[in-house]
Design a protein around this nucleic acid. Structure first.
Lengths: 200, 200
DNA sequence: CTCCATTATGAACGCTGTTCATGAAGCCTG
DNA sequence: CAGGCTTCATGAACAGCGTTCATAATGGAG
């Protein structure tokens, strides 16, 4: 039964990702240990390496899930019949909300680094597309003059700016706005960036 | 000779920081190993722990140095007799320049995390003040109405936004503007943020 | 039931950061 | 200068990590 063998492996694969996700959510990236995750998933230590190349690849799959959940959260946050600026504001607040609600999983997406020299598989690089997917359209509405390439660059910059404020608020040591002002500061930043689009 | 003992320890301390800095600059944070750094510094493995509590503390001292150098680079980048906006633009470009010239040391400042639960010593938290020290004055010139507290929050947000764009450009997987556009995108971001200050 | 291919297992390995018994070195005193 | 005592540097030893691989268990085919 080839099919059975396949599905057994898929089961284990999912159990491992589940367990890894739970461990990261509870203790952070550095709290993910091969022995813990395999115990929680109900397999032997070596079983992990029959499914994933190594621990890093497992983390990448957890991050892929987090990105998918984040993408869904962003999409459902888009208000219907709002202005382009209203959409961008809603997306930014949804991003803040996701980061606050899932601090360790969100952190893992950006903190995890493959060993020097090794680079991220293409399938996972493309998982990150959700980060800018929803903001391109409203920006295009504000700036109909921009070519698709320029539009994407602007979307990346805009996302990165908001992301930076959230990141330093959560992990900054001295810099980083206090938690209770994060939402309003991000809103002010989005206002500034969108107003620049419209030189009226 | 008490003094001699003190200076010998200081010597070792400096040799260790030198060696650690060189290793991080060459191989990144994850390339810093206790055995390598002590060998390079010319002491026994255990010698490290007579000077620093652990490896993390040594990293903090390397980061303190990097922050001091970054602070100096920012201060010397301030043009004389420029407008407030001109100063902010120059500071942002200097920040981009430092990150590009010292990619691994710059990365280490933000990527290094103490084990969960342990928090950064106060002296090191204050080393981060240089990140926003120079931008507060020009912002104050643009926004004379803001109280010192609000001013600092705005400075933090502005720095974090620029930082985010630089960070994702250097480490972003899918998002993150291409290297050759980093300077111009940061400039556009600063323009947008400063224009919002002046609703003319 | 028997055999074989396939898969799961966890002891073992090499590399970490950290500790601490040991020995060396320096310093004061008679 | 000798002797004793304190102080410090040393690196073998340890515990914990990710990863491997000889071995055992498994389950379908004849």
């Amino acid at each position: 039964m080839r099919n059975n063998a396949e599905s057994r492996k898929d089961d284990l694969r999912n159990r491992l990702i589940d367990a890894a996700e739970a461990l990261i959510a509870e203790k952070g990236l550095s709290g993910l240990k091969a022995r813990d995750v395999t115990t929680a998933a109900g397999c032997a230590l070596g079983g992990l390496y029959t499914v994933f190349e190594d621990l890093d690849l497992l983390v990448l799959h957890v991050n892929a899930r987090s990105l998918a959940r984040l993408g869904a959260a962003l999409r459902t946050a888009i208000p219907t019949g709002a202005t382009a600026v209203g959409v961008l504001q809603a997306l930014a607040q949804a991003y803040v909300g996701f980061a606050k609600d899932n601090p360790r999983l969100w952190t893992a997406i950006f903190a995890h680094r493959l060993p020097e020299g090794r680079d991220i598989p293409d399938w996972h690089r493309q998982n990150h597309a959700v980060l800018i997917a929803e903001i391109i359209q409203p920006i295009a509405a504000l700036r109909p003059d921009l070519a698709p390439d320029a539009l994407r660059i602007r979307a990346q910059t805009m996302f990165a700016a908001v992301h930076g404020v959230v990141q330093l608020s959560m992990h900054g040591r001295y810099v980083g706005v206090p938690d209770h002002l994060l939402g309003s500061e991000v809103a002010a930043l989005v206002t500034a960036m969108t107003r620049a689009f419209d030189p009226a």
